[in-house]
């Protein structure tokens, strides 16, 4: 089994299905003296944080609530759904299935995982810049998106490196 591939799948799972990673979890609120499961730190896994609006692989989150990329008829949102949510889901499937197969198909699936993550990274930089006016409401200049990148982007960037190592070291019988 390709363990790095499995770790890569778990990391993509975290970024695709969670809004944050809970750190410092507690089961009892000492202030209100009630049973409560919460965490002191919420490490956001959003790709971009612009004016307190967070943009994830699955959609957007602001003070008013959350919205999935697919819940919009706007073209940039649909393209974001394809390049972020669908590719994210495919990356999980590719790495989960690929990590269990010790043959050329497994290696090919690991390469697809790498490519999926690569296109997510590419879209986060180029796509968000091209469609900035429709998605963020402000026209971004070239490379301006780099000032608003959040933890999620860097987690996926690390995951991309991990998936490349997983692809190189994939065991073949």
């Amino acid at each position: 089994m390709n363990r790095l591939g499995l770790i890569s799948a778990i990391i993509t799972l975290l970024t695709l299905f969670l809004p944050f990673i809970p750190i410092g979890i507690y089961f009892w609120n000492e202030v209100s003296s009630t049973v409560e499961v919460d965490s002191f730190i919420k490490l956001p896994v959003s790709l971009v944080n612009f004016n307190n609006n967070q943009y994830f692989l699955w959609g957007t989150l602001n003070q008013d609530g959350f919205n999935f990329w697919v819940n919009s008829s706007s073209m940039p949102f649909i393209i974001s759904f394809i390049f972020l949510s669908i590719l994210g889901l495919l990356a999980i499937i590719f790495s989960l299935v690929g990590s269990t197969k010790k043959d050329s198909l497994g290696k090919r699936l690991m390469s697809y995982n790498f490519l999926s993550l690569f296109f997510i990274i590419l879209y986060s930089i180029l796509g968000f810049t091209i469609y900035s006016e429709e998605i963020f409401g402000v026209k971004f200049g070239l490379l301006e998106v780099f000032s608003y990148l959040d933890y999620g982007f860097y987690i996926i960037l690390l995951n991309l490196i991990l998936s490349f190592i997983a692809f190189i070291k994939h065991p073949l019988i």
Binding site: G24, W28, S39
Partner: peptide, 15 residues
């Protein structure tokens, strides 16, 4: 890394 407090008996401040 992830957990801060696990309550055992909150009434007696045992955690």
């Amino acid at each position: 890394a992830l957990i801060s407090i696990i309550p055992i008996s909150p009434e007696n401040n045992l955690k």
